[in-house]
Amino acid sequence: MQTIDASGMLYRDLNELIRDSVSRGVKEIRLINVNGHRYIGDGLAKEASIIIEGTPGNDLAAFMEGARIEVHGNAQDGTANTMNGGTIVIHGDARDALGYSMRGGEVYVRGDVGYRVGIHMKGYQDMNPAIVVGGKAGDFFAEYMAGGIMIVLGLGLAPDEDIVGNYCGTGMHGGIIYLRGEVAPEQLGKEVKVVSLTEEDTCVLDGYLDNYCQYFKVKREEIDKKPFCKLLPYNKRPYGNMYAGW
């Protein structure tokens, strides 16, 4: 375990240090006093574990291919941008556009997430990305979603609070959304329908929920108190008939 004090460091220097360490074979790096340092774990392909204490900057783990990042604090915008592999565990909230175009790996957020989370998430072959949100999500959740799995648990919601914002799943044409609880039809994008869970869904959910409980020390029973609903796109090709040849 290597500890790096990020206070006063420029992100470029910090990230170079991380890359160096990882390439030298360091398996676990602890970053302390992180505050706004961008691009941590950017493009990182190696197996390594980075523990962040503080508030990492934008584009945390962008283009990441395999590392594991744990944030003790909140993450900012653009986390897991175009991420291809690896795991991110955030012991707090994450902000907007989490998991944009994510193609692989898993992201667990203990608390809430911002707008456009999981936008254009996609799956491919055995790459089946997943985002698990403990709290609630903002508007345009899973916009354009083309693959993968998005789970929102809605833990700790106030009585009148919605689990997701408006336009949930708008433009969705692949993948699955699981919401613990219910969602009002007017909150959904027109491309999405609500269906009930199958046994297979329960199996799939189980794995992610167990991980969530383990990472954040939450009791599984707490989650199981409320049933999930599942959102699927009506059509894999929502815009197939929009055009006329000139």
Binding site: H120, G147, R237, G240
Partner: peptide
């Protein structure tokens, strides 16, 4: 492109980041 065969490849108008 790393997307399933036969699916539309939708490029959003803006980069959402």
């Amino acid at each position: 492109r790393m997307i399933p065969e036969g699916t539309d490849a939708i490029s959003p108008a803006p980069h959402h980041d």
